[in-house]
Nucleic acid binder design. Structure first.
Length: 784
DNA sequence: GAGTTTGAAACT
DNA sequence: CAGTTTCAAACTC
């Protein structure tokens, strides 16, 4: 099960994330090829379906397991967490309070990985209470690792790697050990078979809409993290289920964070570019002080989280929504209940992205015998697991934020904040000693040892919002060891991937971790300011800049906000509203950039002060029991009848609801005007499709002729062969002409104009035929 | 492309 | 909370 289906990789975004902060190396070819058995099923379920079909991605997953997974997914009584389409995926488990920095190193067995994260490791020594900026701009997708700034996720063996070069040319590698679900420590736990570790994917179909509105990125990111190679159909939601493995290090509590973000938008990125597998996930694991430093793959991190859960720690996963067509992938973390009698605890997590709800299944290993169970001495405390997707997607960027490995992690609850923050302090690690999550010594031969992924990181402190507390339902066992789950300090392993595609209008209604969101320091909890930076930030950031955000003292000083320059940072800027830095927009005197970092942060703070939900998606799920999306605030249209794009409801292709204050609304189900508009829109779309198809057909016909007919073209430059005008070409041409005529008719063009349009179209067709013939003549003079 | 309309957000 | 102002997108010509 450790295996991540290669198919999943296809899901990976075209864009390549550029993470300068992360250094990664590709694994040696030794890695076993990923099992092909686990092919994500294309099953599609409406995105809003809360209980998506689960598909096992793991090779190890047996049909039975699939069935289980599905069954568990349907379970609703367990912990439910809604994940908004944030750009972040965060998995954390709290552990013991001890906050010792732990060094992380790759597994000794895996020599390769231990190379560094040059940038992070060295320069990133952050002063306490400071933050780390993680986002990075995606580079051109096509170029893969060769192109700087491109981060490519590769799956080798069962490992998932992200490799690439940052813009600065520094290697970036993210790896998911195939056995990531296994405990980091190579404890000869039971055989893998006994404990099925699986990835399961739940696929749901998103509703098909002209405009995919929902932050799909989050999903895709998650999928990337999983390393699935199968291409995701647009509008699919996938849930990955991970079976927990026994805790790795028993020494101490561990906290694992996983943040995944992805940017959908391809501004400036060639949308057509082939999508190389991209890795967006990174996980850092922090072992307890006692345990040796090590680096952990994502899977492992999750496992760790599960462990922590068992130890009455809460693990949280936040998935930021990415604006992707309609894919949503949720990674569920399965946590075994160590202390408890191995009863499987199905925890279902619901993720809502805009209108989408994902169910994340959490299964716990049922058999105690399995894995060398962690030493979780803690009692049978029910772990709290939270999955949240939130954040603002930034279209243009993907960000992977590597977190230093074994840093101290503190979960901090900021009063008044919906977000939980984790403070991470990582120490630079030589990296040589670190162990990979999947020990080669694994007792289960079936499980391929995960290749160690080494991430060197300098001491870094990172503050990351884990989960918006309010947005996520948490099931907290009464017998919590410590009441303050949220504010707990623990050591963790972390990886951050920051997001970012903006979902300007449609975002998950629940949790949002808006990139660019800055939260004031928790008065009582700490002196730290918290911020989530948009991916663009990274691009603008010089290496050293990663730290700069941390120092933003503006948070601590609320009064400073008052002075913020309103200028470009005002709410009118969509970039800013989306939590992004301005890039290629038309802003004048723009302050929404790194050059005006402090002003920007202040503005963000000010916005949040004014409107705590300023960065939340406007379109969310309706009231309980309502399946349709609706505008969170409702529109206020007066003249447009809510049938123009001025209306936010109409623009989002949703009906106005009772909360709207619009006047003369015609945007309701039975509205004839609305129906007419919809009909016209559909008709227009059909026409465009037909026209495109006709042109495509013509091109194909011509191309086909060129390849197979080798007509009697005289090399001497004689007449262009009329033989090109074959029956097929003639038919295709006629199609084009008819289409043109139809279009003219539909648009009520005068006959004269219609005729002219048809003739012009005919002229174009002829030119194309002639051009193609001439080209053929030139290209194959010999044959001719 | 310029000008107008529109409604959200900011502001008072 | 209501009215006004500002703004940029949507729309029209």
């Amino acid at each position: 099960m450790d295996v991540v289906s290669p198919d999943l990789n296809s899901i990976l975004p075209d864009e390549i994330m550029d993470t300068e902060a992360i250094a990664m190396e590709e694994e040696p070819t030794e890695l076993p090829t990923p099992s092909t058995q686990c092919e994500p099923e294309p099953a599609q379920v409406p995105m809003e379906t809360e209980v998506p079909e689960i598909v096992s991605l793991c090779s190890a997953a047996t049909p039975t397991q699939k069935t289980q997974a599905l069954t568990t997914s349907t379970t609703t009584d367990s912990t439910l967490c809604r994940i908004s389409s944030g750009a972040q995926l965060l998995v954390t488990s709290s552990s013991s309070p001890g906050i010792k920095p732990v060094t992380t190193a790759t597994k000794p067995s895996s020599p390769v990985v231990s190379q560094s994260l040059p940038k992070l490791s060295v320069p990133l020594t952050l002063p306490a209470n400071h933050q780390l900026i993680l986002n990075k701009v995606a580079a051109s997708p096509a170029s893969e690792s060769k192109s700087p700034g491109a981060t490519v996720l590769k799956q080798e063996g069962q490992k998932l790697l992200v490799t690439g070069l940052s813009k600065t040319g520094q290697p970036v590698v993210l790896a998911l050990p195939h056995n990531w679900s296994k405990p980091a420590t190579s404890q000869g736990t039971g055989d893998a078979k006994a404990q099925p570790q699986q990835f399961k994917v739940v696929t749901t179909t998103a509703r098909t809409e002209l405009k995919p509105v929902i932050g799909v990125q989050a999903v895709s990111s998650a999928s990337q993290l999983l390393g699935t190679s199968s291409p995701l159909q647009a509008q699919q939601v996938k849930t990955v289920q991970i079976t927990k493995k026994p805790p790795v290090s028993t020494a101490g509590p561990m906290i694992t964070k996983l943040i995944i973000t992805k940017a959908l938008n391809n501004k400036g990125l060639p949308s057509q570019a082939p999508a190389p597998p991209v890795v967006t996930g990174r996980v850092l694991t922090q072992s307890a002080p006692v345990t040796p430093p090590r680096s952990i793959a994502v899977g492992e991190a999750i496992t760790t989280a599960a462990q922590s859960m068992t130890s009455s720690c809460s693990s949280k996963v936040a998935i930021s929504p990415l604006k992707s067509p309609s894919k949503l992938t949720v990674v569920s973390v399965t946590s075994p209940a160590p202390s408890s009698p191995q009863k499987p605890m199905p925890l279902s997590l619901n993720v809502a992205l805009g209108q989408q709800i994902l169910t994340v299944q959490q299964t716990t290993t049922t058999s105690p015998a399995k894995a060398g169970t962690s030493q979780s001495s803690t009692q049978a405390m029910k772990p709290v697991q939270t999955v949240a997707v939130g954040g603002v997607s930034t279209p243009q960027f993907k960000t992977i934020i590597p977190l230093a490995t074994p840093p101290n992690v503190q979960q901090i609850q900021v009063p008044g904040s919906r977000f939980h923050y984790v403070r991470l302090v990582t120490t630079t690690t030589g990296g040589s000693t670190a162990q990979t999550a999947s020990p080669s010594t694994n007792t289960n031969p079936a499980i391929q040892p995960a290749k160690p992924m080494v991430m060197n990181t300098a001491a870094v402190r990172m503050s990351v919002p884990i989960v918006p507390a309010q947005t996520v339902k948490q099931v907290v066992p009464k017998p919590m060891a410590s009441a303050a789950q949220v504010v707990t300090t623990s050591q963790t392993q972390q990886r951050l991937i920051m997001p970012a595609t903006p979902l300007p209008q449609i975002q998950p209604n629940l949790t949002n971790l808006p990139p660019g969101t800055v939260l004031a320091p928790a008065p009582g909890s700490g002196n730290m300011g918290y911020a989530v930076l948009p991916a663009q930030y990274v691009t603008q950031l010089p290496q050293s800049a990663f730290v700069t955000l941390a120092s933003s003292s503006g948070f601590s000083n609320p009064t400073a906000i008052q002075t913020q320059a309103r200028l470009p940072l005002n709410g009118y800027c969509d970039c800013f509203a989306n939590g992004e830095f301005c890039n290629n927009c038309n802003c004048v005197n723009c302050f929404n950039n790194l050059d005006h970092e402090s002003e920007r942060l202040k503005a963000i703070k000010a916005c949040l002060d004014r409107n705590p939900v300023a960065f939340k998606p406007k379109i969310g799920k309706g009231k309980e029991g309502e399946s349709d999306r609706r505008h969170s605030k409702g529109c206020n249209c007066k003249k447009s009848g809510c049938l123009k794009n001025y209306c936010e409801c109409y623009e989002a292709k949703i009906m106005c609801s009772s909360i709207c204050k619009c006047v003369g609304c015609k945007n309701f189900e039975e509205s004839p005007e609305r129906k007419t508009l919809m009909h016209l829109a559909d008709a227009a779309e059909v026409r465009v499709q037909q026209q495109t198809a006709a042109k495509t057909k013509l091109s194909c016909q011509i191309s086909d002729l060129l390849t197979r007919t080798t007509p009697a073209i005289t090399s001497g430059g004689g007449k262009l062969p009329y033989t090109f005008v074959t029956k097929e070409v003639a038919e295709a041409t006629c199609d084009c002409l008819l289409e043109q005529a139809e279009q003219a008719e539909l648009t009520s063009q005068p006959q004269a104009l219609a005729e002219r349009l048809v003739l012009e179209e005919f002229g174009r067709c002829l030119r194309r035929i002639i051009s193609s013939a001439a080209k053929a003549k030139t290209d194959c003079p010999i044959n001719c």
